[in-house]
């Protein structure tokens, strides 16, 4: 190592003035570029992390919106004589819809609405039943968002409301 340093010094001693100036300019440029690269990588790193945070917020709100949208679907809602009950699913529509979305064509249709997600409604009281309403999950994913919301489930035969939970797992 010391041999290499010594030979560098010897080389510098033997150089002419003009060569020294060129070497100086190149060194200044190299330092300038190193500083620029460090500066820009820090800047873009910060920008990227901000973008990632924005994406997390976006995915979170997308998941929530999908869950709200689910409640307004005529395929699932409790509406009779043009009166729509908020936050309510029809028990038999749940059953019919979970059968419907097993088909690829139906999954394809609802994909723009829900994307890569698993949506289920669990009736928790007084009876216990689980309906998987939509199931399109990717093989690989970077992150997932899970949202749950309490809902009412209406049994039109017994004219009775049950307590349930709708759950959405959104993959990104």
């Amino acid at each position: 190592m010391s041999g290499l340093v010594l030979s560098c010094f010897r080389l510098l001693n033997t150089m002419k003035k003009a060569q020294m100036r060129v070497l100086e300019s190149v060194a200044v440029l190299i330092v300038f570029f190193i500083l620029m690269v460090i500066g820009s990588s820090v800047y873009f790193g910060m920008q990227n992390s901000k973008l990632k945070k924005d994406r997390v917020v976006f995915e979170d709100s997308e998941a929530l919106r999908a869950l709200v949208k689910l409640q307004s679907l005529p395929e699932l809602d409790c509406s009779f004589a043009s009166a729509h009950t908020i936050n309510c699913f029809d028990l038999f529509k749940l059953q019919a819809f979970s059968n419907l979305t097993k088909s690829e064509s139906a999954q394809e249709f609802y994909y723009p609405l829900f994307g890569d997600a698993v949506i289920s409604v669990k009736v928790v009281f007084p009876l216990e039943r689980n309906f998987t309403l939509y199931d399109v999950h990717p093989v690989e994913f970077k992150s997932l968002v899970r949202k749950t919301m309490p809902v009412l489930v209406y049994d039109p035969v017994l004219s009775r409301y049950y307590f349930g939970l709708s759950e959405l797992i959104k993959y990104a």
């Binding site: 005529p74 395929e75 699932l76 038999f92 059953q95 019919a96 419907l100 139906a106 039109p156 035969v157």
Partner: peptide, 25 residues
């Protein structure tokens, strides 16, 4: 019309379930 196909399928299946249940009752 594409949306109606799906909604009608759900209402048709629901009507079948309702027919079975009300028949049992």
């Amino acid at each position: 019309l594409q949306r109606l196909n799906l909604v009608a399928k759900v209402f048709s299946d629901r009507a079948m379930f309702l027919a079975e249940k009300t028949d049992e009752m």
